[in-house]
């Protein structure tokens, strides 16, 4: 189901918690699985459930509770733009609009070539750098002026 490398990473996460609390590693395991498989399919969630010895529905609860898990396929690049108030005051909406315009898609949509998915995000804890956006859950891009956005999109091919 997952690669040896992913399992090794998951095992490292499990080791952070007392042995009887393997379930604590579920968030990290899902993140690692998602990184590897692109999104969380039912099979993936079931695999994680059995790997951690927890009920599948409990994994599903977690996967649907936290924003950054994708329970449906997303584009190669998932771009999440923060539009919360502090960001909005410094152009969060404008940045979002600009990206939408450039990609020709709205929030929660994927470009027809499957390359980009756009999401609206909540506060990312980087309001001083507004506008900010997040690429594939891991890469935070700050001060995203239209020029910066152009540059980023050119890089994300």
């Amino acid at each position: 189901m997952l690669s040896q490398d992913a399992l090794k990473r998951i095992d490292r996460e499990i080791a952070k918690y007392p042995p009887e609390h393997k379930q604590s590693a579920v968030m990290a395991s899902l993140a690692i699985a998602q990184e590897e498989t692109g999104w969380l399919s039912n099979d993936t969630m079931e695999f994680v459930a059995s790997y951690l010895g927890m009920p599948a529905i409990a994994v599903f609860e977690v996967a649907t509770f936290y924003n950054m898990y994708d329970l449906a396929p997303v584009g190669k690049y998932k771009i999440t733009v923060c539009t919360n108030l502090p960001c909005a005051l410094s152009g969060g909406y404008d940045a979002a609009e600009y990206v939408q315009h450039k990609l020709g898609i709205g929030f929660n949509e994927t470009t027809p070539d499957g390359k980009y998915t756009l999401k609206e995000g909540e506060c990312m804890g980087a309001c001083g750098d507004a506008p900010v956006l997040l690429v594939n859950n891991t890469r935070m891009c700050s001060w995203m002026t239209p020029e910066q956005i152009d540059k980023l999109l050119a890089e994300l091919k």
Binding site: E46, P55, A56, I57, A58, V59, F60, E61, T64, F65
Partner: peptide, 22 residues
């Protein structure tokens, strides 16, 4: 003794369900 139902999603979207149509 067995968790077959759970609450998926959060906030107003919370709903009671079993894992994928079980």
């Amino acid at each position: 003794g067995i968790m077959e139902l759970g609450v998926a999603n959060r906030g107003e979207h919370s709903e009671i369900l079993a894992f994928v149509d079980r």
